[in-house]
Design a protein around this nucleic acid. Structure first.
Ligand code: ZN
Ligand code: ZN
Ligand code: ZN
Ligand code: ZN
Lengths: 163, 163
DNA sequence: TCAGCTTTTGTTATCTTATATCGTAACGGC
DNA sequence: GCCGTTACGATATAAGATAACAAAAGCTGA
Protein backbone atom coordinates (compact mmCIF):
# COMPACT_ATOMS: atom_id res chain seq x y z
CA UNK A 1 0.00 0.00 0.00
CA UNK A 2 1.06 3.54 -0.64
CA UNK A 3 2.01 5.69 2.25
CA UNK A 4 -0.43 8.24 0.96
CA UNK A 5 -3.27 6.47 2.66
CA UNK A 6 -2.01 7.58 6.02
CA UNK A 7 0.26 10.48 5.22
CA UNK A 8 -1.17 13.27 3.08
CA UNK A 9 0.80 13.97 -0.03
CA UNK A 10 1.89 17.35 1.20
CA UNK A 11 3.72 15.69 4.08
CA UNK A 12 5.52 13.26 1.88
CA UNK A 13 9.06 14.34 1.32
CA UNK A 14 9.50 12.07 -1.64
CA UNK A 15 7.92 14.00 -4.44
CA UNK A 16 9.95 15.58 -7.21
CA UNK A 17 11.03 18.92 -5.82
CA UNK A 18 12.56 19.98 -9.09
CA UNK A 19 9.27 19.69 -10.87
CA UNK A 20 7.33 21.34 -8.10
CA UNK A 21 9.73 24.30 -8.10
CA UNK A 22 9.53 24.63 -11.87
CA UNK A 23 5.77 24.51 -11.69
CA UNK A 24 5.63 27.27 -9.12
CA UNK A 25 7.94 29.50 -11.14
CA UNK A 26 5.99 28.91 -14.32
CA UNK A 27 2.73 29.70 -12.59
CA UNK A 28 4.17 32.91 -11.16
CA UNK A 29 5.58 33.91 -14.55
CA UNK A 30 2.25 33.39 -16.25
CA UNK A 31 0.39 35.32 -13.57
CA UNK A 32 2.84 38.23 -13.79
CA UNK A 33 2.47 38.23 -17.56
CA UNK A 34 -1.29 38.43 -17.27
CA UNK A 35 -1.10 41.17 -14.66
CA UNK A 36 1.40 43.22 -16.63
CA UNK A 37 3.97 43.23 -13.86
CA UNK A 38 7.57 42.14 -13.87
CA UNK A 39 8.95 38.97 -12.43
CA UNK A 40 12.52 40.24 -12.60
CA UNK A 41 15.46 37.82 -12.41
CA UNK A 42 15.99 38.79 -8.80
CA UNK A 43 12.39 38.20 -7.83
CA UNK A 44 12.31 34.97 -9.75
CA UNK A 45 15.47 33.79 -8.05
CA UNK A 46 14.14 34.58 -4.58
CA UNK A 47 10.96 32.70 -5.39
CA UNK A 48 13.09 29.76 -6.51
CA UNK A 49 15.06 29.88 -3.29
CA UNK A 50 11.88 29.87 -1.26
CA UNK A 51 10.71 26.80 -3.11
CA UNK A 52 14.08 25.10 -3.00
CA UNK A 53 13.93 25.18 0.76
CA UNK A 54 10.48 23.73 0.46
CA UNK A 55 9.66 24.71 4.00
CA UNK A 56 9.37 28.00 5.80
CA UNK A 57 12.67 29.87 5.60
CA UNK A 58 13.72 33.12 7.20
CA UNK A 59 14.59 36.25 5.27
CA UNK A 60 18.21 36.11 6.36
CA UNK A 61 18.46 32.47 5.40
CA UNK A 62 17.32 33.41 1.93
CA UNK A 63 19.74 36.31 1.98
CA UNK A 64 22.68 34.04 2.72
CA UNK A 65 21.76 31.79 -0.16
CA UNK A 66 21.22 34.68 -2.51
CA UNK A 67 24.54 36.27 -1.59
CA UNK A 68 26.46 33.26 -2.87
CA UNK A 69 25.50 34.12 -6.40
CA UNK A 70 24.61 37.78 -6.04
CA UNK A 71 27.16 39.46 -3.86
CA UNK A 72 25.41 42.81 -3.79
CA UNK A 73 22.41 41.37 -1.99
CA UNK A 74 21.52 43.03 1.31
CA UNK A 75 18.50 42.85 3.61
CA UNK A 76 16.44 45.28 1.54
CA UNK A 77 17.08 43.13 -1.52
CA UNK A 78 15.36 40.17 0.09
CA UNK A 79 12.62 42.11 1.79
CA UNK A 80 11.71 43.93 -1.40
CA UNK A 81 11.52 40.69 -3.29
CA UNK A 82 9.50 39.04 -0.53
CA UNK A 83 7.14 42.00 -0.35
CA UNK A 84 6.55 41.73 -4.05
CA UNK A 85 6.05 37.97 -3.94
CA UNK A 86 3.64 38.27 -1.02
CA UNK A 87 1.67 41.06 -2.68
CA UNK A 88 1.23 38.86 -5.70
CA UNK A 89 0.30 35.90 -3.53
CA UNK A 90 3.24 33.72 -4.55
CA UNK A 91 4.61 33.52 -1.05
CA UNK A 92 3.06 33.51 2.40
CA UNK A 93 4.54 34.73 5.60
CA UNK A 94 4.35 32.43 8.61
CA UNK A 95 3.87 34.89 11.43
CA UNK A 96 4.74 32.53 14.22
CA UNK A 97 8.07 31.67 12.62
CA UNK A 98 9.04 34.95 10.98
CA UNK A 99 9.49 32.83 7.91
CA UNK A 100 8.30 32.64 4.35
CA UNK A 101 6.97 29.78 2.30
CA UNK A 102 5.78 29.30 -1.26
CA UNK A 103 2.06 29.25 -1.90
CA UNK A 104 0.66 26.04 -3.31
CA UNK A 105 -2.14 27.75 -5.07
CA UNK A 106 -1.14 31.21 -6.27
CA UNK A 107 -3.23 33.24 -8.63
CA UNK A 108 -6.46 32.86 -6.85
CA UNK A 109 -7.08 34.81 -3.70
CA UNK A 110 -7.46 32.60 -0.69
CA UNK A 111 -7.13 32.50 3.04
CA UNK A 112 -4.76 29.74 3.92
CA UNK A 113 -4.39 27.82 7.11
CA UNK A 114 -0.98 26.54 8.07
CA UNK A 115 -0.20 23.40 9.99
CA UNK A 116 3.36 23.77 11.21
CA UNK A 117 5.45 20.88 12.49
CA UNK A 118 7.53 21.83 15.49
CA UNK A 119 9.96 19.02 14.79
CA UNK A 120 10.76 19.01 11.07
CA UNK A 121 9.70 22.61 10.54
CA UNK A 122 7.56 21.84 7.54
CA UNK A 123 4.35 23.76 7.01
CA UNK A 124 1.31 22.48 5.23
CA UNK A 125 -1.00 25.02 3.69
CA UNK A 126 -4.56 23.92 3.63
CA UNK A 127 -7.65 25.71 2.60
CA UNK A 128 -10.86 25.59 4.47
CA UNK A 129 -13.73 27.87 3.74
CA UNK A 130 -15.34 26.80 6.99
CA UNK A 131 -12.73 28.42 9.19
CA UNK A 132 -12.57 31.54 7.05
CA UNK A 133 -16.33 31.83 7.00
CA UNK A 134 -16.65 31.36 10.73
CA UNK A 135 -14.20 34.18 11.27
CA UNK A 136 -16.01 36.32 8.72
CA UNK A 137 -19.34 35.75 10.45
CA UNK A 138 -17.86 36.56 13.81
CA UNK A 139 -16.30 39.75 12.52
CA UNK A 140 -19.42 41.01 10.78
CA UNK A 141 -21.54 40.25 13.82
CA UNK A 142 -19.21 42.54 15.76
CA UNK A 143 -19.24 45.19 13.07
CA UNK A 144 -15.61 44.56 12.28
CA UNK A 145 -14.46 45.06 8.70
CA UNK A 146 -11.97 42.31 7.88
CA UNK A 147 -9.07 42.81 5.53
CA UNK A 148 -6.85 39.87 6.34
CA UNK A 149 -6.63 36.85 8.52
CA UNK A 150 -3.91 34.52 9.66
CA UNK A 151 -4.55 31.05 10.97
CA UNK A 152 -1.58 29.02 12.11
CA UNK A 153 -1.54 25.80 14.07
CA UNK A 154 1.55 24.07 15.42
CA UNK A 155 2.19 20.53 16.49
CA UNK A 156 3.66 17.34 15.09
CA UNK A 157 3.21 16.09 11.56
CA UNK A 158 2.44 12.41 11.00
CA UNK A 159 6.03 11.58 10.13
CA UNK A 160 7.49 13.20 13.20
CA UNK A 161 5.07 11.52 15.59
CA UNK A 162 6.63 8.16 14.91
CA UNK A 163 10.01 9.17 16.30
CA UNK B 1 -29.97 54.06 23.95
CA UNK B 2 -26.65 52.62 24.83
CA UNK B 3 -23.96 52.41 22.24
CA UNK B 4 -23.56 48.79 23.16
CA UNK B 5 -26.30 47.80 20.76
CA UNK B 6 -24.07 48.55 17.82
CA UNK B 7 -20.59 48.54 19.27
CA UNK B 8 -19.56 45.56 21.37
CA UNK B 9 -18.52 46.47 24.84
CA UNK B 10 -14.96 45.44 24.18
CA UNK B 11 -14.65 48.14 21.55
CA UNK B 12 -15.99 50.82 23.77
CA UNK B 13 -13.22 53.00 25.07
CA UNK B 14 -15.36 54.45 27.78
CA UNK B 15 -15.25 51.80 30.46
CA UNK B 16 -13.34 52.25 33.68
CA UNK B 17 -9.81 51.18 32.90
CA UNK B 18 -8.74 51.48 36.49
CA UNK B 19 -11.26 48.92 37.57
CA UNK B 20 -10.52 46.61 34.69
CA UNK B 21 -6.79 46.71 35.48
CA UNK B 22 -7.42 46.03 39.14
CA UNK B 23 -9.70 43.16 38.25
CA UNK B 24 -7.07 41.58 36.03
CA UNK B 25 -4.38 41.88 38.71
CA UNK B 26 -6.66 40.45 41.36
CA UNK B 27 -7.57 37.54 39.17
CA UNK B 28 -3.93 36.83 38.42
CA UNK B 29 -3.02 37.07 42.09
CA UNK B 30 -5.73 34.62 43.06
CA UNK B 31 -4.74 32.19 40.33
CA UNK B 32 -1.08 32.34 41.36
CA UNK B 33 -2.08 31.76 44.94
CA UNK B 34 -4.06 28.70 43.99
CA UNK B 35 -1.25 27.38 41.82
CA UNK B 36 1.40 27.95 44.44
CA UNK B 37 3.50 30.19 42.25
CA UNK B 38 4.77 33.68 42.82
CA UNK B 39 3.38 36.82 41.28
CA UNK B 40 6.43 38.84 42.25
CA UNK B 41 6.31 42.65 42.31
CA UNK B 42 8.12 42.74 39.01
CA UNK B 43 5.74 40.35 37.32
CA UNK B 44 2.76 42.09 38.81
CA UNK B 45 4.01 45.45 37.60
CA UNK B 46 4.57 44.19 34.06
CA UNK B 47 1.07 42.77 34.03
CA UNK B 48 -0.22 46.15 35.19
CA UNK B 49 1.70 47.88 32.42
CA UNK B 50 0.23 45.53 29.84
CA UNK B 51 -3.25 46.34 31.08
CA UNK B 52 -2.59 50.05 31.41
CA UNK B 53 -1.83 50.16 27.73
CA UNK B 54 -5.07 48.31 27.20
CA UNK B 55 -4.06 47.35 23.72
CA UNK B 56 -1.26 45.26 22.28
CA UNK B 57 2.08 46.71 23.29
CA UNK B 58 5.58 45.68 22.31
CA UNK B 59 8.16 44.31 24.71
CA UNK B 60 10.38 47.35 24.31
CA UNK B 61 7.48 49.68 24.87
CA UNK B 62 6.84 47.94 28.16
CA UNK B 63 10.55 48.08 28.91
CA UNK B 64 10.65 51.85 28.45
CA UNK B 65 7.76 52.24 30.83
CA UNK B 66 9.23 49.88 33.38
CA UNK B 67 12.61 51.60 33.28
CA UNK B 68 11.12 54.85 34.55
CA UNK B 69 10.52 53.29 37.92
CA UNK B 70 12.92 50.38 37.83
CA UNK B 71 16.20 51.51 36.39
CA UNK B 72 17.81 48.10 36.34
CA UNK B 73 15.28 46.78 33.87
CA UNK B 74 16.73 45.35 30.68
CA UNK B 75 15.32 43.26 27.83
CA UNK B 76 15.59 39.98 29.77
CA UNK B 77 13.62 41.55 32.59
CA UNK B 78 10.64 42.12 30.36
CA UNK B 79 10.90 38.92 28.40
CA UNK B 80 11.12 36.82 31.55
CA UNK B 81 8.08 38.51 33.00
CA UNK B 82 6.19 38.13 29.74
CA UNK B 83 7.17 34.47 29.49
CA UNK B 84 5.84 33.88 32.95
CA UNK B 85 2.64 35.80 32.30
CA UNK B 86 2.06 33.94 29.05
CA UNK B 87 2.74 30.56 30.61
CA UNK B 88 0.14 31.31 33.21
CA UNK B 89 -2.29 32.54 30.59
CA UNK B 90 -2.48 36.12 31.87
CA UNK B 91 -1.13 37.60 28.68
CA UNK B 92 -1.31 36.64 25.02
CA UNK B 93 1.17 37.33 22.31
CA UNK B 94 -0.14 38.82 19.08
CA UNK B 95 2.08 37.20 16.50
CA UNK B 96 1.30 39.56 13.68
CA UNK B 97 2.25 42.59 15.78
CA UNK B 98 5.06 41.22 17.93
CA UNK B 99 3.02 42.59 20.77
CA UNK B 100 1.44 41.48 24.01
CA UNK B 101 -2.00 41.99 25.42
CA UNK B 102 -3.80 41.06 28.60
CA UNK B 103 -6.14 38.10 28.52
CA UNK B 104 -9.76 38.84 29.27
CA UNK B 105 -10.42 35.45 30.64
CA UNK B 106 -7.37 34.05 32.41
CA UNK B 107 -7.45 30.98 34.53
CA UNK B 108 -9.26 28.79 32.11
CA UNK B 109 -7.44 27.38 29.16
CA UNK B 110 -8.79 28.64 25.87
CA UNK B 111 -7.91 29.26 22.28
CA UNK B 112 -8.52 32.88 21.58
CA UNK B 113 -9.16 34.62 18.32
CA UNK B 114 -7.99 38.18 17.90
CA UNK B 115 -9.62 40.87 15.83
CA UNK B 116 -7.02 43.57 15.38
CA UNK B 117 -7.84 47.09 14.22
CA UNK B 118 -5.26 48.42 11.78
CA UNK B 119 -6.20 51.98 12.64
CA UNK B 120 -6.48 52.29 16.41
CA UNK B 121 -4.38 49.20 17.12
CA UNK B 122 -6.84 47.73 19.55
CA UNK B 123 -7.29 43.99 19.67
CA UNK B 124 -10.44 42.20 20.69
CA UNK B 125 -10.09 38.71 22.01
CA UNK B 126 -13.05 36.54 21.24
CA UNK B 127 -13.62 32.93 21.86
CA UNK B 128 -15.20 30.62 19.39
CA UNK B 129 -15.20 26.90 19.77
CA UNK B 130 -16.33 26.62 16.17
CA UNK B 131 -13.10 27.87 14.70
CA UNK B 132 -10.96 25.88 17.11
CA UNK B 133 -12.96 22.74 16.47
CA UNK B 134 -12.79 23.15 12.71
CA UNK B 135 -9.02 23.42 12.93
CA UNK B 136 -8.88 20.43 15.25
CA UNK B 137 -10.94 18.33 12.85
CA UNK B 138 -8.79 19.35 9.95
CA UNK B 139 -5.63 18.49 11.79
CA UNK B 140 -6.79 15.09 12.97
CA UNK B 141 -8.04 14.20 9.51
CA UNK B 142 -4.49 14.84 8.29
CA UNK B 143 -2.95 12.92 11.15
CA UNK B 144 -1.47 16.09 12.58
CA UNK B 145 -1.10 16.30 16.36
CA UNK B 146 -1.96 19.85 17.42
CA UNK B 147 -0.33 21.57 20.34
CA UNK B 148 -1.20 25.20 19.75
CA UNK B 149 -3.06 27.44 17.39
CA UNK B 150 -3.10 31.11 16.60
CA UNK B 151 -5.93 32.88 14.86
CA UNK B 152 -5.58 36.56 14.11
CA UNK B 153 -7.68 38.71 11.86
CA UNK B 154 -6.98 42.31 10.96
CA UNK B 155 -9.20 45.08 9.67
CA UNK B 156 -11.12 48.06 10.96
CA UNK B 157 -13.07 48.15 14.18
CA UNK B 158 -16.53 49.73 14.21
CA UNK B 159 -15.25 52.98 15.67
CA UNK B 160 -12.53 53.43 13.10
CA UNK B 161 -14.79 52.75 10.13
CA UNK B 162 -16.67 55.95 10.77
CA UNK B 163 -13.65 58.14 10.17
C1' DT C 1 19.57 29.73 62.74
C1' DC C 2 21.79 28.78 59.00
C1' DA C 3 23.55 25.66 55.30
C1' DG C 4 22.16 24.24 50.93
C1' DC C 5 19.03 24.27 47.28
C1' DT C 6 15.73 26.52 43.98
C1' DT C 7 13.85 30.44 41.96
C1' DT C 8 14.18 35.01 40.59
C1' DT C 9 16.58 39.05 39.17
C1' DG C 10 20.86 41.84 37.53
C1' DT C 11 24.17 42.64 33.95
C1' DT C 12 26.42 42.53 29.67
C1' DA C 13 26.75 41.08 25.25
C1' DT C 14 25.03 39.30 21.13
C1' DC C 15 21.87 37.64 17.76
C1' DT C 16 17.87 37.89 14.61
C1' DT C 17 14.56 40.34 12.02
C1' DA C 18 13.07 44.44 9.61
C1' DT C 19 13.11 49.38 7.92
C1' DA C 20 14.79 54.08 6.65
C1' DT C 21 17.15 56.71 3.44
C1' DC C 22 19.26 58.14 -0.44
C1' DG C 23 21.46 57.43 -4.73
C1' DT C 24 21.75 54.99 -9.22
C1' DA C 25 20.21 52.17 -12.96
C1' DA C 26 16.84 50.04 -15.88
C1' DC C 27 12.42 50.04 -18.11
C1' DG C 28 8.52 51.71 -20.97
C1' DG C 29 5.42 54.99 -23.22
C1' DC C 30 5.65 58.85 -26.00
C1' DG D 1 16.04 60.44 -27.00
C1' DC D 2 13.14 62.32 -23.04
C1' DC D 3 10.96 61.57 -18.76
C1' DG D 4 8.18 59.52 -15.30
C1' DT D 5 8.02 55.14 -12.99
C1' DT D 6 9.82 51.19 -11.17
C1' DA D 7 13.53 48.46 -9.49
C1' DC D 8 18.01 47.84 -7.46
C1' DG D 9 22.55 49.11 -4.78
C1' DA D 10 24.48 50.58 -0.54
C1' DT D 11 24.78 52.04 4.14
C1' DA D 12 22.96 52.72 8.44
C1' DT D 13 19.86 51.92 12.05
C1' DA D 14 15.68 50.38 14.33
C1' DA D 15 13.16 46.78 16.61
C1' DG D 16 12.66 42.36 18.67
C1' DA D 17 14.63 38.45 21.21
C1' DT D 18 18.06 35.43 23.47
C1' DA D 19 22.62 33.67 25.60
C1' DA D 20 25.42 33.35 29.43
C1' DC D 21 26.84 34.02 33.88
C1' DA D 22 26.64 36.37 38.36
C1' DA D 23 24.19 37.95 42.35
C1' DA D 24 20.28 38.13 45.26
C1' DA D 25 16.16 36.43 47.35
C1' DG D 26 13.10 32.87 48.86
C1' DC D 27 12.36 28.25 50.58
C1' DT D 28 13.43 23.85 53.21
C1' DG D 29 14.98 20.98 56.37
C1' DA D 30 18.54 19.90 59.60
ZN1 ZN E 1 -1.50 30.03 -0.43
ZN1 ZN F 1 7.42 16.97 11.12
ZN1 ZN G 1 -7.31 34.91 26.54
ZN1 ZN H 1 -10.00 50.87 15.53
Amino acid sequence: MSVSKTIPVAWQRTHDHGQCIAGAIDAAARICESRGIRLTPLRRRVLELVWENHKPVGAYGLLDELKREHSSAAPPTIYRALDFLMEQGFVHRIQSLNAYVGCNDPGHSHKGIFLICNDCGDALEIEDKGVANTIDRFASRLGFLLTSQSVEAAGLCPGCQEA
